[in-house]
Design a protein around this nucleic acid. Structure first.
Lengths: 146, 146
DNA sequence: GGTGAAACGTAGGCCGT
DNA sequence: ACGGCCTACGTTTCACC
């Protein structure tokens, strides 16, 4: 992990589809050496993959919220039950197990407030393990580098 | 935005570097038609870009937390001051303006707990607008599709 | 790490529906 | 307006230095 590798990661973060020749001249190495490094980083799983990023509004995602969830039991089984409950809900984009007053923090992306209400009642409200739900609606994201 | 476009987006979310010919056969169209659609989606900014995703642990990110921030003033100026304060902090990966008891939710990625402590004291503690700080340490992320 | 050449993919014009 | 075919061009990839 020398400065060339760091440059590679920097470039690939900005543009995951940059061509190998462009990448090579951006970091100051030949295309073949660059390719070997990239392949090596992929093999070592430093680079886990590549993803396209989309405009949520144009895809009909008009409502984003972080939802803090408290469970009624602190057992491992309760956690597994809850995780299973949200795993296949496509509106749940992230699920984090956190420290603090509540056990979980979700990022939920819905089409609208109405759609979120449905999610709130039908998914979260129907999970027996859920004790408390606290919704933080995202009004703006002045920084989002993920 | 028909079913072909949706398939394209689905494939590019899974693998942003899939080749056009592979993408074409995955969605059941010819390469040229596929390419035109992809270029069109890029032009319309439905596809905003492509990014490589990395293994944070291998890059020395051993500590991730969501931090809820309350300000001591609800004015627009206070918000702008705070946003400016975190904009150039590279440990702050996300900054969301939210509804609820506190105004902001940050995602912070640090090398270690010690590094986070430094961030907590030197960055957040030194911002005069900040009234309350509540840290939720991420212990696990059973789902993270971003 | 660099060079070169073969294999492969891209990108755009053209035609048919 | 949209998909398929064809082809020149560029890029990737690998054996070799």
């Amino acid at each position: 992990m020398d400065k060339f590798d760091n440059k590679i990661l920097h470039e690939l973060k900005n543009d995951g589809r940059i061509s190998n020749v462009e990448l090579a001249q951006a970091i100051g190495l030949s295309p073949s050496a660059t390719l070997r490094r990239v392949q090596d980083l992929e093999k070592k799983k430093v680079i886990q993959g590549y993803r396209a990023v989309f405009d949520k509004e144009q895809l009909g995602i008009g409502f984003v919220a972080y939802v803090s969830i408290g469970l009624n039991s602190h057992t491992k089984q309760a956690q597994l039950d809850f995780e299973e409950h949200v795993r296949f809900e496509k509106e749940v984009v992230e699920c984090h197990n956190i420290t603090g007053a509540n056990e979980y923090l979700l990022r939920v992306e819905s089409a609208s407030l109405a759609a979120y209400k449905r999610f709130h009642s039908d998914v979260l409200g129907e999970c027996e393990r859920v004790k408390s739900i606290s919704t933080m609606v995202v009004m703006d994201s002045p920084k989002d580098e993920r």
